[in-house]
């Protein structure tokens, strides 16, 4: 399983390094979303700071849908998918590999968005360990759920529009928990750190679901 996961992750990242689709399309889209949110809210520093946790996570979620669609397109057309199926890779390994590549991309995306929030939203981090924990945990759940629902929509004519409709509602707990962690880490609110536990549970559940379900989903 881990051999296949490493193989798939290195293939996906190699293709991304070469094509730079995420670099030139997904990251600018995320930053643009953040800046447009800031324009819509207006030049009120207190309001910008107060809304920054939710806007950071919304921008991340919207951009993650693009990143997931790109990750699915890396698998190629029907012929390429069948050629890959003939290699008889472990489905759990394929799932983990795709998640691993997406986690790397999502963490980089988070760093760019964090820089944008600190720059444009008058926000200061007061609890780095909590912020780092949430920024590490969230991409695991985000990538797991996205790859599972991506495999459901693969091959459908309407997959590009269906994926966000299916996956965004599922990601609501992650959005809420991530925004609460971010709010506490930036001193916007004084809630407890229990929300990072929600992130951990969400990520763990979807990671396990993906390992179990990815094979049957791909075969069907």
């Amino acid at each position: 399983m881990f051999h296949d996961a490493r193989l798939i992750a290195s293939r996906d990242l190699r293709i991304e390094l070469r094509s730079k689709v995420a670099t030139w399309q997904v990251v600018p889209f995320a930053l643009l979303s953040l800046i447009l949110f800031a324009f819509a809210i207006g030049p009120n520093p207190a309001l910008l700071k107060q809304t920054s946790p939710g806007l950071f996570w919304l921008a991340l979620l919207f951009a993650s849908v693009l990143g997931t669609q790109r990750s699915l397109s890396v698998e190629g057309d029907d012929a390429t998918r069948e050629a890959t199926r003939l290699l008889d890779l472990d489905p759990a390994g394929i799932f983990l590999g795709k998640c691993l590549a997406l986690i790397v991309e999502f963490v980089l995306l988070e760093l760019v968005l964090l820089a944008g929030v600190l720059l444009f939203f008058h926000t200061h981090v007061t609890a780095w360990p909590l912020l780092v924990a949430s920024l590490v945990l969230a991409p695991i759940g985000l990538s797991s759920a996205s790859v599972i629902y991506g495999s459901v929509t693969t091959g459908l004519r309407s997959s590009a529009t269906l994926l966000p409709l299916l996956v965004l509602p599922v990601l609501a707990p992650l959005l809420i928990a991530g925004a609460r962690c971010f709010a506490e880490a930036t001193g916007s609110t004084g809630n407890s750190a229990e929300w990072s536990g929600v992130l951990a549970v969400f990520s763990g559940v979807y990671l396990l679901l993906g390992i179990v379900l990815y094979g049957p989903l791909e075969e069907s």
């Binding site: 293709i15 890396v74 190629g76 012929a79 998918r81 008889d88």
Partner: peptide
């Protein structure tokens, strides 16, 4: 069962290659 497909090679009309990788890769 697992392992069967590895013993088989199929070349279709479309060879099913990754477009962004080189032939060697």
């Amino acid at each position: 069962g697992r392992g069967f497909r590895r013993r088989v090679g199929l070349l279709g009309h479309d060879p099913g290659l990754y477009e962004d990788l080189t032939a060697e890769e």
